[in-house]
Amino acid sequence: MNWEMLRKSFPNQWVLIEAIEAHSNNGRRIVDRISIINTYDEGKQALEDYKVIHKKEPNRELYVAHTSKTELEIIERQWLGVRV
């Protein structure tokens, strides 16, 4: 599924999604294929579920977004410093 299809299937909802196929371009993450994990009325619950899944499986590429957005805009972050 892509973002446009997801938006049409789940209008005006918060979604927790996983990037199945994605690539980087000019500091942005472009998600080509998406798998939906769950839908929510409130973004807070989506973020809580994100934290639980991310803690158990940190290598999964998960995102929380609202389907009112016409584009899925994901800006990549660069971490500086030492992880402890």
Rank of each mutant, 00 (worst) to 15 (best):
Q45W: 15
N2A: 08
T39Y: 11
R33M: 02
F10N: 12
N26E: 14
K44D: 10
S68E: 07
I53D: 05
L16N: 14
V52D: 04
V15C: 09
E21H: 04
F10P: 05
H54P: 00
I20L: 03
G27F: 09
A46D: 13
R83V: 03
R77G: 06
I53Q: 06
L16Y: 11
M1W: 12
K44N: 09
I75Y: 15
I74C: 02
G27D: 06
V82M: 04
R28D: 14
V64G: 01
L72D: 10
K8D: 12
P11D: 03
T67D: 04
E57F: 12
I17L: 09
W14V: 05
V84Y: 11
I36W: 13
E4G: 10
P58A: 07
H54R: 10
R77A: 07
Y40R: 02
E18S: 10
I17C: 06
H23N: 11
E73P: 00
D32Y: 01
E21A: 02
H66L: 06
M5S: 09
L72N: 10
L62C: 01
L6C: 11
R29A: 04
L80G: 10
I53F: 04
D41F: 06
M5K: 08
S24E: 14
E57L: 08
V52L: 07
M5P: 04
M5I: 06
H66Q: 11
A65N: 04
R60F: 04
N12V: 06
W14A: 06
S9P: 00
G81R: 05
E61G: 05
E61H: 09
G81I: 00
P58W: 10
I74W: 02
R77V: 12
L72H: 11
D49G: 01
K55V: 15
G27P: 00
K8S: 10
W14M: 08
L16K: 13
K55M: 12
V31Q: 02
I30E: 01
P11E: 02
E42W: 14
R83Y: 14
P11N: 03
R60Q: 05
L72Q: 07
E4R: 13
V52M: 05
E18I: 15
K55L: 12
E76G: 04
T70K: 15
G81H: 05
M1N: 11
I30H: 00
D32P: 00
V84E: 13
G81T: 01
G43I: 02
I36Q: 13
P11T: 01
Q78C: 01
A19L: 06
S35N: 09
N2I: 12
V15R: 06
A65K: 04
E42T: 15
Q13N: 08
P11L: 01
D41C: 03
Q13K: 12
E73R: 08
R83D: 12
E73C: 09
E61T: 14
M1R: 13
E61D: 12
A19M: 08
N59V: 11
A65S: 03
W3E: 03
I20H: 04
I74V: 05
K56M: 09
L6W: 02
G43Q: 10
I53Y: 05
I30C: 01
V52P: 00
